[in-house]
Amino acid sequence: MTALAEAGAILPSRGGIVGALSDLFWRRPKLLVFLMVLPALLWLGIVYVGSLFALLLQSFFYIDDFSGLIVHEFSLRTYAELFRAQNLDIIIRTVSMAAVVTVASAIVAFPVAYWAARYARGPWKAVFYLGIMLPLWASYLVKVYAWKLILAKEGILNWLFEQLHITFLLDWWLSLPLIGGNSLSISYTGTFLVFLYVWMPYMILPIQAAIERVPTNLLDASADLGATPRQTFWKVIFPLALPGIIAGSIFTFSLTLGDYIIPQIVGNSQFFIGQAVYSHQGTAGNIPLAAAFTVVPIVIMVLYLWGAKRAGAFDAL
């Protein structure tokens, strides 16, 4: 400490312009915050929100029936078109699929999440973590491709049914109306299985997070007060895990609503919302209708998010 000369109470400014700039940031901390937020704000504000807004604007235009050209006038005509039987069908089909996929993934995901949160210890913790993370992050197309392999006529699933001599079960299932079809890969059952597989990891993580947050002594307390394990589950664990399930359902629901690739590759030729959007903006050139179609998932998700927020699901994200 002897090396330092006796200094005054205020040290001289160092570093020229950098030092001056730093002094300015200290005096005006809000300026610094503003400068830091600005790039992301500009990017997201202009590129993303700007585009979104432009799209919404176009949903109020309409296509002239004779010329096939877009009429740049404010009108609700395009929205009215959404309520035509064929378009309404698409919406109902997509929303029903999203709902079924959500419920199913909650059922399949819960035990995995519960086990990972409560019982996985030591190396098993890592195994579960990676076992959930790898499917989550594996390429979306590869996952869909894997199911194309599985569901193919000459694929592993049909082979398995054959080996077990239960092909009649599969045939019976495929003969059912609506969920059946000529083969698994062109039925709603197939579409559903792929959706379930691809989005399920998004359900596991929030549930796991919610369960991990339940203190163990709460379970001990419940048992101590005379609850059977079944009662403890339904009265203590499940209500506390519910925000996690709702948080996960936001993902599964939203992702299913917006997907257009899975039903295109595995499923019958009936459109889902995503496909309708894709075809209307593409070959059909009906941008207003495509835009109006995208408003449907946005409205559904806004309502869904609003409900989820009221249920306290955002704390589990």
Partner: peptide
């Protein structure tokens, strides 16, 4: 004031404190 010097506008890294 710190040792007689007014410190208004002086950031922490320039105060010998």
């Amino acid at each position: 004031q710190i040792f007689g010097d007014a410190v208004e506008g002086i950031p922490p890294y320039r105060r010998n404190v």
